[in-house]
Computed example of a mutant assay.
Amino acid sequence: MTIELPALCDLPEETIPGILRIENSDKDETTPILVDMLRSVYPHNQVFGEYCPVNAYIAAPPREVYEYLADTRSLEEWTYSLRGFEETEEPGLWVSDDRIGKNTKIYTRTVANPDAMTVDYHCAWDQGQHLWMIYLIRVVDAQLVFNKPGSVVLWTNCHHPFYDKNPYPETAPKGRPVWVGDFWDMFSAGHQIEMDNMKAICEYRAANGLPIKPKWMD
């Protein structure tokens, strides 16, 4: 995989197997993987209809994991499709490309609490005035809950009604065939891929004596 963005530039190519990003697995290649992760032994909507929870243990220090996630630019590394972050003229508001949508800009503001180690990403496609897509993340010291070093990351999304219908169609790029809510039924599987990416990246850096938050974010 050729890395042209600063994301993961501190690591040699192909050193972390199993990471799925849009650069090495496009939407068509990844969709069957997502579908295979959805189990038919329970009603998917019953479990993931209103909320999408994804959790993981990460063998890396919790404060360092928190500080990594609290930097909006970390999304360029561990998310599947958010790339090219630039801060807008409004301090703290970033714009990037969501490559899962055609010509789609996504706006992100990170609201972080260092005492509680919570990181909430307030996002929206197409416009940055109403950030209604809220990604709620909490980092927990694994010593407290598992009696071992490391981090537990809890991540939940809520099914905002705007996922069902674009509230700002006038801001959408012309000819885009999809809306973010079209993917809600795959959020659980898609977010699990991203959580696995986060875990792999943080654990690799921790195991190899590298800062969890890379120097290019300083």
Results as ranks from 00 to 15, higher is better:
residue 184 W to T: 02
residue 128 G to S: 00
residue 5 L to I: 11
residue 93 L to R: 03
residue 100 I to N: 13
residue 136 L to H: 14
residue 7 A to C: 04
residue 46 Q to E: 13
residue 86 E to Y: 05
residue 121 Y to W: 07
residue 153 V to K: 04
residue 150 G to W: 02
residue 131 L to M: 05
residue 191 H to I: 08
residue 119 V to M: 12
residue 180 V to T: 08
residue 58 I to E: 13
residue 17 P to R: 01
residue 122 H to L: 14
residue 18 G to F: 09
residue 184 W to I: 00
residue 124 A to N: 14
residue 217 M to F: 05
residue 11 L to D: 07
residue 138 R to P: 03
residue 149 P to F: 10
residue 49 G to L: 07
residue 186 M to G: 07
residue 169 P to D: 00
residue 22 I to T: 10
residue 193 I to V: 15
residue 157 N to L: 15
residue 157 N to T: 08
residue 89 E to G: 15
residue 111 V to G: 00
residue 53 P to T: 07
residue 105 K to N: 11
residue 71 D to A: 09
residue 166 N to S: 05
residue 107 Y to F: 12
residue 202 C to L: 03
residue 161 P to N: 01
residue 205 R to G: 01
residue 11 L to V: 02
residue 136 L to T: 05
residue 13 E to N: 12
residue 217 M to I: 04
residue 41 V to L: 08
residue 106 I to P: 15
residue 149 P to Y: 11
residue 140 V to Y: 02
residue 35 V to H: 10
residue 193 I to R: 03
residue 32 P to T: 05
residue 185 D to Y: 13
residue 167 P to S: 02
residue 51 Y to H: 13
residue 90 E to V: 11
residue 11 L to K: 02
residue 25 S to W: 06
residue 29 E to N: 08
residue 119 V to G: 07
residue 123 C to I: 12
residue 182 D to N: 14
residue 199 K to W: 04
residue 49 G to Q: 06
residue 131 L to W: 03
residue 92 G to Q: 01
residue 1 M to P: 11
residue 68 Y to R: 10
residue 78 W to Y: 04
residue 202 C to G: 09
residue 74 S to K: 09
residue 68 Y to L: 06
residue 52 C to P: 07
residue 140 V to A: 05
residue 6 P to Y: 02
residue 68 Y to C: 08
residue 42 Y to P: 08
residue 101 G to I: 00
residue 99 R to H: 10
residue 203 E to T: 10
residue 3 I to W: 06
residue 190 G to Y: 10
residue 165 K to V: 04
residue 2 T to D: 14
residue 30 T to C: 00
residue 212 I to K: 11
residue 30 T to Y: 03
residue 85 F to M: 07
residue 43 P to S: 04
residue 55 N to A: 05
residue 172 A to G: 01
residue 6 P to K: 00
residue 209 G to S: 01
residue 108 T to W: 05
residue 200 A to R: 13
residue 58 I to H: 09
residue 174 K to V: 09
residue 208 N to E: 00
residue 68 Y to F: 15
residue 159 H to A: 01
residue 218 D to R: 03
residue 148 K to Q: 15
residue 10 D to S: 12
residue 37 M to A: 15
residue 156 T to A: 02
residue 48 F to Q: 07
residue 174 K to S: 11
residue 10 D to C: 12
residue 24 N to K: 05
residue 26 D to H: 14
residue 135 Y to T: 12
residue 139 V to N: 09
residue 36 D to Q: 15
residue 63 R to E: 07
residue 190 G to D: 04
residue 135 Y to D: 13
residue 72 T to P: 14
residue 110 T to P: 01
residue 218 D to M: 03
residue 162 F to W: 05
residue 175 G to L: 00
residue 212 I to Q: 02
residue 216 W to I: 00
residue 128 G to Q: 01
residue 186 M to L: 15
residue 135 Y to N: 09
residue 103 N to D: 15
